[in-house]
Write a protein that binds this DNA or RNA. Structure first.
Lengths: 172, 172
DNA sequence: CCTTAACTTCACAAATTTGTGAAACTAGCG
DNA sequence: CGCTAGTTTCACAAATTTGTGAAGTTAAGG
C-alpha cells in the first residue's frame, strides 16, 4: 500500500502541509505586488530542500501548465530571484533560487528607487524648488537618497549579523 | 482671451507639465504594485502646493469619476498615506497627504514583514528546522527580523539627517 | 424637518490579465 | 542528420479587475 500518508512518512515531510505553506506564502507575496505564478514558483523553490526544481516538478507540484512555469520563471529570472541551470546530460532546465535571494532582492530595490528619484527630480524642476509642492518633492528625493545610502550600510551589517547566527552553510 | 498658456502663466505652473509628471510618477508607483487610481490620486496630492485637494478637484485634475476618487481615497486612507478632513462650513471632504508620508509608509512595511514572518515561521515548523529547506526559511526569518530592527534605527537617523537639510517646515 | 450637496455603494460593461492547449522551436542524443 | 524530450511562443477563453453611471445614503444649512 502506497498511501499518501506513507509517502509523506517516507519523504519525511507532510507534503500537504508544505503545499499549504507554499500557497499561503505565495499569496502573501502576491498581495505585496508580485505576479501570482511567480510567487507560487518562488515559494515552491523556497520550500524545496535544495532550492532547485525542474519545470516538470514545478508543474506537478503547483498543478500548472509548462507554459505557466515558463512565464513565471522568465519573470523570476528577469528580476534575479531565480537562476536557470541545465543538468549535464539532460535536456531539462533546473531553476534554482539564487544565493541570498532576499538580500539581493532588497538590494535591487535600489534600481527602482533610482528610477523614482529621476522622475521626482524632474517634478521638482517642473514645479520649482521654491514652491511648496516642489519643496515637498525635493524632500522626498532627499529621503530616497538617504534610503539608498542606508541600504548599503544595512547590507554590510546583515552580513556581519549573519555570521553570529548558527546557520548551515546553505545560502538563502 | 483666457488661453491655457495664459492660465499657466497666471498660476505660475505649467499645468500640462505638472500633469505629465503626475501621470509618470503614478505609473511608476503602479508598476511597483499600487492600485492605479490610488497612485494617481497620491501623485496629484504630492504635486499640489498644500498637499490637499477635494474630491471634485481630484476628479477634474485626473479626469475620473467621483466613484473612482472615492475608491482610491478609501484605499489611501486605509494604508495611512492620506487623511480625510472636512473644511468647516462646507460639505466637502478634503484629502490631505499625511505628514511624512514616505517615512510612515516605509515604517508601516513593518506590519507586512511581521505577517510574512509568521507565515515563514509556520513554514519552518512544518519543514523542520533541521531540514535544508527549513533552515533556509529560518534564515529568511532572521533576515526579516534584522530588517525590522534596522528600520527603527534608520528612521531615527533619517530624522537626524533631515535636520541638516535646509528644508521649509512643510512636512513630507 | 426638509432640501440638497456631497460622498459611497452597487451592478454592470469594458478592459486587462491570466493560464491554457497547441503549435513552433531548440538542442541533446543516437 | 533526424528524432524527440523539453521549452517557449501564440492565440484564445476564462477570470479578474477597473471605472462608470445611477441609485442610495448622509449630513449641512436653511
Amino acid at each position: 500500500m502506497t498511501s499518501e500518508t506513507e509517502e509523506n512518512t517516507r519523504s519525511g515531510r507532510d507534503e500537504e502541509a508544505v503545499s499549504r505553506f507554499v500557497e499561503r506564502f505565495a499569496s502573501e507575496m502576491t498581495e505585496a505586488g508580485m505576479q501570482r505564478m511567480a510567487s507560487r514558483v518562488f515559494a515552491a523553490l523556497l520550500a524545496d530542500d535544495d532550492g532547485s526544481m525542474t519545470s516538470a516538478e514545478l508543474a506537478v507540484a503547483l498543478q500548472i501548465s509548462p507554459a505557466a512555469v515558463s512565464g513565471a520563471v522568465s519573470y523570476l529570472t528577469q528580476v534575479s530571484m531565480v537562476g536557470r541551470e541545465r543538468d549535464p546530460g539532460s535536456r531539462r532546465d533546473r531553476y534554482r533560487l539564487i544565493d541570498e535571494v532576499w538580500f539581493s532582492t532588497f538590494a535591487s530595490r535600489d534600481r527602482v528607487l533610482t528610477r523614482w528619484e529621476n522622475t521626482l527630480k524632474e517634478g521638482v524642476r517642473i514645479l520649482g524648488e521654491d514652491t511648496p509642492a516642489g519643496a515637498r518633492i525635493a524632500e522626498t528625493v532627499a529621503f530616497f537618497e538617504f534610503l539608498q545610502a542606508e541600504l548599503v550600510g544595512m547590507m554590510g551589517r546583515w552580513h556581519e549579523h549573519r555570521k553570529t547566527l548558527d546557520l548551515p552553510n546553505r545560502p538563502v
